[in-house]
Amino acid sequence: MNGLNYILKRILQIIPVVFIISILIFLMLRAIPGDPARLVLGEKATIESIDAMREKLGLNESYIVQYGKFVKGIVSLDLGTSLTYQRPVIELLRSRVKITLMLTLISTFFSLLISFPLGYYAGKYKDSMFDQIVKSGALAAVSMPSFWIGLLLMILFGVKLRWLPVGGWGNTFIEQIRSLILPGLTMSLLTSALLIRNIRNSVVDISNMDYVDFARSKGISERAVKNRHILRNALISTVTLLLMRMAYMLGGSVIIETVFSLPGIGKLMVDSIFGRDYAVVQALVMLFAMIILMINLLTDIIYSFLDPRVKF
């Protein structure tokens, strides 16, 4: 019951945060120089046509009226029409969120696949040759820019071997999965590197704890020691890190999306800011805010399962 109360309280706390974010994003967008009407019309726009476009887009209305429309839109889930794409924002988000979500999941899957075995064994055999190689590899993965890795992977798997498409998005599910493998892998490298370091260090620390020695001295099998005592404790900080990375990935990566020509929300966000597409930026910021708030809440809840000491 206490737990439920806590969750309810946390959800209620979200409301004022969202409200403040909506005011901030509304004002910040309008504070940066650049007129949407000019951008829609392009370089050869005449002064006359810009005025007409401003009127058409409702940019001549007062901020209060514009903000009122924005809030009304959020409440009624009508997020307006995108300037640049001439589509309802909600429709635009639907297709793009799917891509970013799939990319995040695939990338997380790769990260887990790479980081857990490497991190655990590097920690278990601390200072061994294997540990050194894993540590250097992780450092290299953190240091290499993802657009470069992406291009290298595309040259190898797309141009030379022709196993996978060179960027782009498919029509069928199989095509879509195929087009997400390289970006997913590229994106997972950084996450994996971070996780590997974290898991390795946790395993090293935890292995030296008295309770691990105690567990062993009780005669518990090595596998049970690993799973129940070492990995489970190592998971606590790893889960936080992973969820934070997932929240970050759900925001979309403009570099990965540009290099792999994937129409996800990261690129949409950047393009919309450059295009001063107010409706889209506002909707996306609100969406990101909700995702971050939700993931934070989720992290706290998962914590209570992993660590019995955490109580609400």
Partner: peptide, 16 residues
Amino acid sequence: VVGDDNTRSLQLQSGD
């Protein structure tokens, strides 16, 4: 639409 110049040229080379 292939926004990145490098990707566009790789796609041409790969036949995409």
